[in-house]
């Protein structure tokens, strides 16, 4: 059994899960929705084993390190965190349809990783050999995953409230499966309320690591700057919300903007701009 086989199974599980959720939306069959959730949880379990196995494999190859060191490993970890956060939301709020708007992000990550990226285990360059890097990556990606869920929820919110009519009247077809818009708004807010502290921890641990590695806790490198931009966008979201009552569609748009900035921070900076973090660029 190799980790790469398990990652393929994971990808397949997320694909099946997503299809179940889509059928659930179209058919309004509860059982299929449940199947979607359980397939996703199964995938999460397999992926957990796969990540641990890859960790062990890196030791067998004589360059042991946590599997969080290049673009492939990070995108796999990102998918894992997204499904993990989805599992929490699913258990807490019990609205299956949410899966239809969240699992695609995880599937996209896994599919890109498995099909488009070099999955070889590479040795860790000296700058990346730090425990702070591990804390940094874990906290950042958990934060990103919470933002991904918030983004999926916000898309649902915009769909439900699309026509500006009374909500009940717009609920035709698959929209009738959606949670009430007030619940979507609430989950969006809660997800960001969890993601923001995690992102803050991610930025701080990143600064500590940079200080150990280069003697500068902040150097306005593009990656750092973009993480700050993301932080500002969500800080604006939170302040607008608890003080000016920015709820509803405007909050949803701000949440989507925040996630777009997050993705740019994660991928755009590595692929389009250059800087200290460009290790992920190939």
């Amino acid at each position: 059994m190799t980790s790469s086989l398990l990652f393929n199974i994971t990808t397949f599980a997320y694909l099946v899960s997503m299809l179940c959720f889509f059928v659930h939306l179209a058919s309004r069959n509860e059982h299929i929705g449940t199947a979607g959730s359980y397939t996703a949880f199964g995938g999460l379990l397999v992926q957990t084993v796969a990540i641990l196995l890859r960790w062990k494999e890196s030791y067998d190859l004589g360059m042991g390190h946590a599997p969080l060191s290049n673009l492939y490993e990070s995108v796999v970890f990102f998918s894992w965190t997204i499904v993990l956060v989805f599992a929490f939301v699913d258990f807490k709020f019990r609205y299956r349809v949410i899966g239809a708007f969240v699992i695609p992000f995880a599937l996209l990550g896994m599919a890109w990783g498995q099909l488009g990226l070099d999955s070889g285990i590479q040795p860790l360059v000296p700058a990346l050999q730090s425990n702070w890097l591990i804390y940094h990556v874990i906290t950042c990606f958990l934060g990103y995953a919470a933002f991904a869920v918030a983004c999926g929820i916000s898309i649902m919110y915009l769909l439900v409230t699309r026509t500006g009519l009374e909500e009940e009247k717009t609920r035709k077809g698959f929209l009738s499966m959606f949670p009430p818009s007030s619940i979507l708004d609430e989950i969006n807010y809660r997800a960001i309320m969890v993601g923001f502290p995690l992102l803050t921890l991610g930025i701080v641990t990143g600064a500590i690591w940079a200080n150990y590695a280069w003697g500068t806790y902040w150097s306005w490198d593009p990656k750092e700057t973009w993480s700050l931009i993301v932080w500002f966008v969500y800080a604006a979201f939170l302040h607008a919300r608890f003080t000016r009552g920015w709820v509803g569609r405007r909050a949803a748009w701000l949440s989507i903007t925040g996630f777009a900035a997050t993705i740019f921070c994660y991928l755009g900076v590595n692929l389009l701009l250059s800087g200290l973090h460009s290790y992920g660029g190939n």
């Binding site: 306005w220 966008v233 604006a236 003080t243 000016r244 701009l273």
Partner: peptide, 24 residues
């Protein structure tokens, strides 16, 4: 005012982008 706060968050986000696309 909070209006100033939110404006500043947005202004800081947008201006910070310049420094990531123009070499420093």
């Amino acid at each position: 005012s909070l209006r100033l706060t939110i404006s500043l968050f947005i202004i800081l986000s947008i201006t910070s982008i310049f420094g990531t696309v123009i070499p420093q």
